[in-house]
Simulated assay, not measured.
Amino acid sequence: MLWIFRIVLFLLIIYLFYRCFKFIVNPKRKLELAQEQKKFYFFDDQDNVRKNFFITYKGVLFEGEKYLGTTEDSFEVVSIFVWTNNVSSLKGLSLKDFYYIEGEIRERYPKAKIDWKSPIKELLNNNDNETS
């Protein structure tokens, strides 16, 4: 009877270590931690086009929706819409920050056209009109 108890206890300890490890390496947790620390983090499953990606930058959480299309020689992500659900968190971000985020998206999806949703879209369009 004592051996059975020891085996069960040993298995329980192994299971707890496994759960702790899974918690530590969970990408969603890393995303939340990066948002709290106001760091950059890109959370994406590039193999699954149907899953949206998430970016945290300077404490702001952005979400991007990918659309598959055809290019000259293959099927690729050709369009991406990016937005944030909390518009008030954009306070303090500049054009340079949005261009940095676009650059990070382009590294992963070079053939995609990136569209921002309002109010970021207006900020970028106003800047494009002023430089023209």
Results as ranks from 00 to 15, higher is better:
Pro119Tyr: 03
Asn129Gly: 07
Lys111Ser: 07
Tyr18Arg: 14
Leu16Ile: 12
Asp97Ala: 04
Arg19Cys: 13
Ile101Trp: 01
Phe62Gly: 04
Gln35Glu: 14
Ser94Tyr: 08
Lys39Gln: 12
Ile80Cys: 01
Ser94Leu: 12
Lys30Ile: 12
Glu36Asn: 11
Arg29Asn: 14
Leu2Cys: 06
Asp47Asn: 06
Gly69Pro: 00
Asp44Trp: 00
Asn125Val: 09
Tyr41Ala: 07
Arg19Ser: 15
Asn126Pro: 07
Val77Arg: 00
Arg106Ile: 08
Ile24Cys: 10
Ile120Asn: 06
Gly69His: 00
Phe62Cys: 05
Lys121Tyr: 04
Phe23Pro: 04
Tyr57Ile: 06
Trp83Ile: 10
Glu104Cys: 02
Phe17Asp: 15
Asp73Lys: 08
Asn127His: 13
Tyr109Ala: 02
Asn48Cys: 02
Ile4Ser: 09
Gly64Phe: 00
Gly92Lys: 06
Glu104Leu: 02
Gly59Cys: 03
Pro27Asn: 03
Asp97His: 03
Leu11Glu: 13
Gln37Gly: 06
Tyr18Phe: 14
Phe5Gln: 12
Trp116Gly: 00
Glu65Ala: 05
Glu102Arg: 04
Val77Asp: 01
Ile55Gln: 03
Gly92Pro: 01
Glu130Gln: 11
Phe17Gln: 12
Asp44Cys: 05
Gly64Trp: 00
Met1Thr: 06
Phe21Asp: 15
Val87Asn: 09
Arg108Gln: 00
Asn127Leu: 09
Phe23Val: 11
Thr56Arg: 03
Phe62Trp: 05
Gly59Glu: 05
Leu12His: 06
Asp128Gln: 12
Val87Gln: 10
Asn26Leu: 08
Asn129Thr: 10
Lys58Asn: 07
Tyr99Thr: 13
Ile14Val: 14
Leu12Trp: 11
Pro119Cys: 07
Phe23Tyr: 15
Ile7Glu: 12
Asn127Arg: 10
Asn86Ile: 09
Leu31Gln: 04
Phe23Gln: 11
Phe23Trp: 15
Ile114Gln: 02
Val78Phe: 01
Asn127Phe: 13
Phe54Tyr: 15
Asn48Arg: 02
Tyr67His: 05
Asn129Gln: 13
Ile114Val: 01
Leu31Gly: 01
Phe10Asp: 12
Glu107Asn: 10
Phe5Glu: 14
Leu33Ile: 13
Tyr99Arg: 14
Lys117Ile: 04
Phe75Glu: 07
Phe42Arg: 03
Tyr67Ser: 04
Gly64Asn: 00
Phe43Met: 13
Gly92Glu: 08
Val60Cys: 06
Leu12Thr: 09
Ile4Tyr: 09
Ser118Val: 11
Lys117Tyr: 03
Glu36Arg: 13
Lys28Pro: 02
Glu107Thr: 06
Ile7Trp: 10
Trp116Thr: 02
Lys91Cys: 07
